[in-house]
């Protein structure tokens, strides 16, 4: 009899422990994520203006969203940024990681690489804002010193977004490289030795061994950086505020503008819900397409 009850008791106790360990993050999740998300969803069906009580307006906000040319423009601008930011940043990071792996395991170099990432975003944006200033900026002094025309950078419709992308590549490439570098350490060295014995060259080894075995890490890096990239906000808030005109009015800035400049909190949450749907779709496709959960090492 007792032998029967023992394992059940133990199992129950184990479950209790499990809940105890999960509780802190579960409570945090409920309070800070789940409840606000549901509230946000509800808010998107209202005309809340922050100060007066909200009125239910049905799907009016969503109807408006579908006809909103500015929203489409914001999506386009955001996509433009992501497409500039992610490929260059990832390739740069991959190159840096492979070089670190090959030539130097020095923690000092790794430390230097993540340094830009350690700076607060606001500081990074401010530093570059000053360096890139059209009239007084250090970079323009160099450009003029070399005999070229000074450039408006953040002040020009054509250059603003590439400039912001460059700033964020500078900030994140090192950190991304460290992530990939950690992934590289999991690839068994014997594989490279075996390939070398078989007469494979560096290029073949890189594309035949490194990339396939790095896939789960690369997918993780891509998923997180793409989400982060869609969330571009602080650099823009400091440097261009969505301008010049609407050249850098990305979705996040658009949401902010509706919520805190125009006081249309209902419509602002509608845009956030749409962004949420877009991001979850993109992520799902990525996970499916790259088969992220299985490793070729198994």
């Amino acid at each position: 009899m007792t032998t029967h009850r023992q394992p059940r008791l133990a199992a129950r106790r184990e479950a209790l422990y499990a809940w105890a360990f999960v509780a802190p993050s579960l409570i945090g999740f409920l309070v800070f994520f789940a409840v606000p998300s549901v509230r946000g969803l509800l808010m998107s069906f209202t005309d809340w203006d922050l100060l007066r009580p909200a009125k239910f307006v049905g799907v009016a906000n969503y109807v408006r969203l579908f006809g909103d040319a500015d929203f489409r423009h914001a999506l386009k601008v955001t996509a433009y940024y992501v497409l500039m930011n992610i490929p260059i940043q990832t390739m740069l990071a991959l190159g840096l990681a492979v070089m670190m792996d090959k030539f130097s395991k020095s923690t000092v170099i790794r430390g230097i690489l993540v340094l830009p990432w350690l700076l607060p975003n606001i500081v990074v944006a401010l530093i570059w804002l000053w360096l890139l200033d059209p009239t007084m900026g250090f970079l323009n002094q160099i450009i003029m010193g070399l005999g070229f025309q000074r450039q408006p950078f953040l002040g020009s419709i054509d250059q603003a977004m590439p400039t912001i992308a460059a700033i964020n590549i500078w900030r994140h490439a090192g950190y991304t490289a460290i992530l990939i570098y950690a992934g590289l350490q999991t690839i068994p060295k014997e594989l490279y030795e075996a390939a070398a014995i078989d007469g494979a060259n560096e290029r073949q080894m890189f594309f035949g061994i490194t990339i396939p075995l790095l896939r789960p890490v690369l997918v993780f890096v891509l998923v997180t950086t793409i989400i982060g990239s869609f969330q571009i906000f602080d650099t823009i808030a400091i440097t261009t505020k969505g301008g010049p005109v609407d050249a850098t009015r990305v979705v996040y800035w658009y949401i902010y503008e509706y919520a805190f400049v125009r006081f249309k909190m209902g419509y602002a949450t509608t845009i956030s819900v749409a962004l949420f749907a877009i991001l979850i779709t993109i992520t799902f496709i990525q996970m499916r397409y790259f088969n992220a959960n299985s490793s070729d090492l198994d």
């Binding site: 789940a34 606000p36 998300s37 509230r39 946000g40 956030s272 949420f276 979850i280």
Partner: peptide, 12 residues
């Protein structure tokens, strides 16, 4: 979970 963070940030 991570995605939910994005939307909830605004609300928080």
């Amino acid at each position: 979970f991570a995605l939910m963070v994005i939307t909830s940030m605004l609300l928080v």
